[in-house]
Structure formats: C-alpha cells, structure tokens
C-alpha cells in the first residue's frame, strides 16, 4: 500500500521532474554546455507566479505562458552577446560553465533585490482542488497537475523536434554543428532559439515548482540545477525526450527513500547522479556513444 503510493507518486512527480529538467537538456544538446543558470530561471518563474497570483489575482499557471517572449529575448541576447567570444577561447566548454554560473549569480542577486529573500509559497487552494483520488489513495492535486502538464509539454517538444523544419535543424545541430552548417542550416539562429526555449521551459516549470517544492526562495537556484542535471544524466544527456524517463526514475527512487529511509532521502539525487555517471555515463535511456 505504501509501496504503491510511493511508486504512483514517484511517477506523477517524476513526470514533472522531467518537465523541470527538459530545458536544461535541450540547451545541453544544442549548445554543448550545462546551463548553470537553469535553476535560477526556475526560481524566477516561481516568483513571477507568486506575483501573478498574489498581486494580480490571476491563475498562477498563466506565468508559464507569459514567460515565453521574455525568455526568447533573453536567450537571444545572452547567446549573441557571449558565444562569439567564447568559441574563440581555449576551453569553451569550461568557460561556458563558469560564465553561466556568473549569470546564475546575477539572476539570483536581481531576484533578491526585487523580491527580497523572503520565502514565498502559495496555498494549494490557489489551484482549485486540493487532492485527487487514484486507485483508492489520495494524491496532492498539484502532483497530478504536474504530470498532466508534463505530458503535453513533452508532446509539443516531440512534435517540434520530429515534425517541424526547425526541429529537424535542431536535431542536425545536436548531432553535429559543423555538418549542420555545411548543409546550410543557420546554426547560430537555431542555437539562440533553443537557448530561449530552454529558458522558457525552465521559467514555466517554475510556476508549478512553487507548489511541488513547497515554496521558493532566491537561493534555491543551484540546488534546482543540480537536481535537474541529475534528471537529464539519468535520462541521457542530449536527448530531451528521455528526460521524462529520467524524471520518473528519480521520482520513484526519491519517494521510495522517503517511505523506507527518510533520513537518507536527501542523498538520493546526488548518489544517483554519481552512480549513473560512473557506471553508465550515457544515461539509462540515452543512445550509445555516437559513431564517428
């Protein structure tokens, strides 16, 4: 009974975790670096949600849509301002990592200045229902909502990647930027768009994060990034769709730990990250190492 609860809960939250992480994976796939500002953008999305709900009395989930235009602009600005210099440097991968760490710090500081460091949370009643019954047990409504939103989000990403021209170009850039450029794809444009979309996915995941994580504060960013990174490492780096599988594995592992060894539950994401990296770096669901 508890096992059943933990597993169903793991699947529900896990699908949301996939949504939380998918933007990071998209950016990694296309730009080949870990966007350390991912978590800070999630937090920013949470604050936007709080403001919408508390100040404007709008549906908090609207934040997920409002974030779209500014995210694209931010993505493009960062991309065009930064990459030309970085790609000329000696160690672009590490320098990008450090650079985005700096951007994360700046975003966190701005969040603190604008919203103060007070923790913000929204009562579950803001979303309407409070709990939902599945197979005779009650689950928080926002768990179910998180999973229900994750499905169309992944559907949209799938359609984008496999059914649109831009998605085809994106996959080409993911597999080899040089080859993509040689067949006439505007690699820079595709990369800038993907960075923007990645940031948008982060911000929109933030609107549910304020419920699922029990609240938000500016200092959460790096923890969220590490968590999201764990999800995409488990799922497979550079394959956005697999993030949902990574999320479900992590969700179940975390819930089982909470049920049977709560004092060790905090170690789960980190331990799983280390284990997967050392034992199966391509991820549990990732494709095998690409052939040259």
């Amino acid at each position: 009974m508890l096992l059943e609860f933990a597993l169903i809960g793991g699947v529900l939250t896990g699908m949301y975790y996939g949504f939380l992480a998918v933007g990071l994976n998209l950016v990694f796939g296309v730009l080949r670096f870990v966007n350390l500002a991912h978590g800070s953008v999630v937090v920013l999305g949470s604050y936007l949600t709080w403001e919408l709900s508390n100040t404007w009395h709008l549906n908090p989930l609207l934040a997920g849509l409002i974030a779209f235009p500014p995210s694209l602009v931010l993505g493009a600005v960062i991309f065009y301002a930064v990459t030309p210099r970085l790609s000329r440097s000696a160690d672009p991968e590490m320098l990008s990592l450090i650079l985005f760490f700096g951007i994360a710090q700046a975003i966190e500081a701005i969040t603190t200045i604008v919203f103060t460091s007070n923790r913000r949370a929204l009562p579950g009643s803001t979303l309407g229902a409070s709990s939902v019954s599945i197979l005779g047990q009650r689950y928080p409504f926002y768990w179910v909502l998180g999973a229900a939103i994750a499905v169309p989000v992944f559907g949209a990403i799938y359609i984008y990647l496999y059914r649109t021209r831009l998605g085809l170009a994106t996959r080409a850039v993911m597999s080899s930027p040089d080859d993509a450029a040689s067949v006439g794809i505007d690699v820079k444009r595709v990369s800038a768009i993907c960075l923007g979309v990645g940031l948008f996915l982060a911000a929109s995941a933030g609107s549910l994060s304020i419920f699922i994580r029990g609240g938000t504060d500016p200092a959460q960013g790096i923890a969220v990034t590490t968590f999201a990174f764990t999800v995409i490492v488990i799922g497979g780096l550079g394959n956005p769709i697999s993030s949902i599988a990574g999320g479900v594995v992590l969700g179940c592992a975390y819930n089982l730990a909470q049920a049977y060894a709560p004092s060790w539950s905090g170690v789960i994401p980190y331990g799983l990250l280390l284990a997967v990296m050392l034992i199966r770096p391509s991820g549990l669901f990732g494709s095998q190492v690409r052939v040259a």
Binding site: L2, Q137, G214, Y254, A259
Partner: peptide, 9 residues
C-alpha cells in the same frame, strides 16, 4: 521540502 510520502507512511 517534500513530505507527502512520509505523511502517507
């Protein structure tokens, strides 16, 4: 910040 499963237990 996640207690739901514990509460169930």
């Amino acid at each position: 910040t996640s207690y739901t499963t514990l509460i169930q237990e």
